[in-house]
């Protein structure tokens, strides 16, 4: 093949030197970032497990190990679902939580208690309740958000608005049901729903871990497809991706992961936004094989470190959720302002 004789570009000529930047330098940046994040994670977990045990190892360690496991499940679920959602929607501001996925889960669980009654719920094992709420969320969220995302002409701000409105609507419906519920059912519901970082619901930890592994594995297997999706819908179709089917599959994965994290600790709106964007900035690559792992490492490290600090330094005066929402909310506004300027 003869070299092209045309299109002599002065910029091309001037930057001939940049050709030397080899692939392994980028690779090594990725290696460094992932190694550093793993070390930070190991340190956070060690700190969480050993801080101020006071000799009661046989009491403290199993309890804390269970907490670490729950935080790890939540962190990975939030990180993976956010990265996948942001690639699917072609933006770095929206997350499943901001779009109302968590609120929908709470609404569905509330509706279940409302419809079945406290006796009905008492007869159903916790695992079945979790399975039922999760199943409903997968169906509901997939149908709803596939419809929301199907019209490509909607801009980012329309999507933000839809998300805020959907989230508020779901929460309002849920609180309406709280009000008209009888006290017994309300007590059952609180038991089912009001999980938080200080009150981890570990009864469903085992099944949640299984769902998490399945969902994350499925997302990781689709990493090359996700890479292509980051070019946008049209280019993905041109490169042979069945966009409709892929979007549905990804929404199912996202809904499963949101159900996992919401069942364990309740809604945490801004954690995903923080960890996903931090991961993109650190790794500086589009490859999902890297970003999925990096975001997960950051999320688990942040949760364990934050919880350790909260318990020992702040003496539980405050919850991890509210701190995440404070930091994440400020970051969210900053991102919106930056997006509006560009």
């Amino acid at each position: 093949m003869p070299p092209p004789d045309v299109s002599v570009d002065p910029v091309t000529q001037a930057t001939g030197a940049s050709r030397a930047a080899p692939a392994h330098r980028r690779l090594s940046r990725v290696t460094i970032v992932l190694t550093a994040l793993s070390l930070v994670l190991a340190a956070s977990v060690t700190l969480f497990l050993t801080w101020d045990v006071g000799g009661h190892w046989d009491f403290a360690l199993p309890r804390r190990l269970e907490q670490v496991a729950a935080l790890a499940v939540v962190g990975i679920a939030v990180a993976v679902s956010t990265v996948v959602f942001q690639t699917l929607t072609q933006n770095r501001i929206l997350t499943p939580s901001i779009m109302g996925f968590d609120a929908l889960y709470v609404l569905l669980a509330t509706t279940l208690v409302f419809v079945l009654g406290s006796r009905g719920v008492a007869q159903i094992p916790d695992l079945a309740m979790f399975g039922l709420s999760t199943g409903l969320l997968v169906v509901g969220a997939t149908l709803l958000y596939r419809w929301v995302l199907s019209d490509q002409s909607r801009g980012l701000y329309t999507l933000v608005l839809v998300g805020v409105i959907a989230g508020t609507l779901f929460s309002s419906f849920a609180s309406f049901m709280f009000r008209v519920m009888n006290p017994n059912e309300f007590a059952v519901l609180m038991d089912e729903l009001l999980a938080s970082f200080n009150r981890l619901d570990t009864t469903v930890l085992g099944i949640a871990a299984v769902v998490l592994l399945a969902g994350s594995f499925a997302a990781f297997r689709m990493r090359h497809t996700l890479d292509v999706l980051s070019l946008g819908r049209e280019k993905a179709i041109a490169l042979g991706i069945d966009h409709r089917r892929t979007a549905t599959r990804l929404l199912v994965i996202i809904a499963l992961l949101v159900a996992v994290s919401t069942a364990l600790v309740g809604p945490i709106v801004f954690l995903g936004l923080l960890v996903a964007n931090l991961a993109y900035q650190l790794t500086r690559t589009h490859r999902h094989a890297v970003n999925l792992v990096a975001a997960s490492l950051i999320a688990v490290a942040a949760l364990t470190l934050g919880q350790a600090l909260l318990e020992h330094v702040l003496d539980f005066n405050g919850t991890l959720g509210s701190i995440i929402n404070l930091v994440g909310g400020v970051y969210f506004i900053a991102l919106l302002v930056k997006e509006a300027r560009s």
Binding site: Q86, Q90, S230, L231, A238, L239, R284, H286
Partner: peptide, 17 residues
């Protein structure tokens, strides 16, 4: 996609490539 390719005019991506 192995027999027909299409290039449209919108080149927007958030990814670092």
């Amino acid at each position: 996609a192995t027999i027909l390719s299409i290039l449209r005019q919108e080149h927007h991506t958030t990814a670092r490539i």
